[in-house]
């Protein structure tokens, strides 16, 4: 097991290394740099600043400097957010995004399983149709529409009913609920569909019939037989979903004014903030690799047939 984990981590390391390298050279190949702005700098200014930030060095040298610093866990200072370390930006942004993301994943996972179970239980009856309409909406409507709508709705309710329910992130836990729900919506819809088809298969399986013959009621059957067996595909996609959701969503974060990592990343790209781009990319890559590994291990716990590290 530990050997397996080590092997996976090693291959993950090379994956991240590869991503970082491609991003680094891709980023430099794109015209423009962090210093370019609407108004042109004089040649002298450009030279002075290039020298200051080391852009005058050959690219491979900059690359090795980047590797060296990254190896020491230092992504350097942001170009566009003066005086801020990229490490700090990531730490702060991620803590916000992760709070939101974990909530969103909880919503998505529980919602997906619940709705998926309902649609499967009531398949081809009205609850099924109703939920599936929402699922299609959830998958096809972009999240900023939901986000704007949800916010507008809260503001409207607040006004009509004289409430003060937070309509944007103000640092409190409650204010994260609606953004998290909206953020998790797409994943929830996807999971619902996945859960539905997977549960439908399980419902018709022989061991569920056996469970019925034992005299279990439908809740007991769901809980100890159907759920665990139908949840496997859900878990598989949960890993990447956790990685992508907890590392932030630009749209949700800007609409609900949550200072998360997604916003930082997009702003970094928009402004060619080299250090910020590299920092967030390496971070996101590593996190993704880690989450997929974690999910594979969890998978082994849920499905005893899969022995982590032995299968091949």
């Amino acid at each position: 097991m530990s050997k397996y984990v080590f092997k996976r981590l090693l291959s993950g390391f090379f994956t991240v290394f590869f991503i970082a390298t491609v991003t680094f050279f891709g980023m430099h190949a794109i015209p423009g740099d962090p210093l370019s702005s609407d108004k042109v700098m004089s040649e002298a200014s450009k030279e002075a600043l290039n020298k200051k930030y080391g852009f005058d060095k050959p690219l491979y040298e900059q690359y090795f400097i980047f590797l060296k610093n990254t190896a020491q866990g230092d992504f350097g200072m942001s170009f566009t957010k003066k005086g801020q370390d990229v490490n700090d930006i990531i730490k702060q942004g991620f803590s916000e995004s992760a709070k939101l993301g974990v909530l969103a994943i909880l919503f998505a996972a529980f919602g997906g399983i619940l709705w998926g179970a309902l649609t499967a239980k009531y398949r081809n009856k009205w609850p099924d149709y109703l939920i599936m309409i929402f699922v299609i909406l959830g998958i096809s409507v972009p999240s900023f529409v939901f986000a704007s709508f949800a916010q507008l709705f809260i503001v409207f309710l607040n006004q009509e009913l004289n409430l003060v329910f937070p309509y944007r992130g103000d640092g409190s836990f409650v204010s994260l609920l609606v953004p998290a729900l909206v953020l998790g919506l797409g994943t929830m819809a996807f999971l619902t569909r996945l859960m539905r088809s997977s549960l439908l298969e399980v419902i018709n399986s022989d061991f569920v019939r056996t469970a019925k013959a034992k005299g279990l009621n439908s809740w007991q059957i769901f809980k100890s037989h159907e759920l665990r067996n139908s949840i496997l595909p859900v878990i598989t996609i949960l890993g990447p979903a956790i990685a992508s959701i907890t590392t932030g969503s630009f749209v949700i974060e800007t609409i609900f004014t949550i200072p998360g990592l997604g916003k930082q990343f997009v702003e970094g790209v928009q402004q060619n903030d080299y250090t910020l781009i590299m920092g967030t990319t390496v971070f996101y890559g590593s996190f993704l690799v880690l989450m997929v590994l974690v999910v594979d291990i969890v998978y082994g716990f849920v499905d005893p047939r899969i022995k982590v590290g032995e299968s091949k």
Partner: peptide
């Protein structure tokens, strides 16, 4: 708050 979302800004004014 800091946001360039015009709808959010508008909602903040409404609120």
């Amino acid at each position: 708050a800091i946001t360039d979302q015009s709808t959010t800004r508008f909602n903040m004014f409404i609120s």
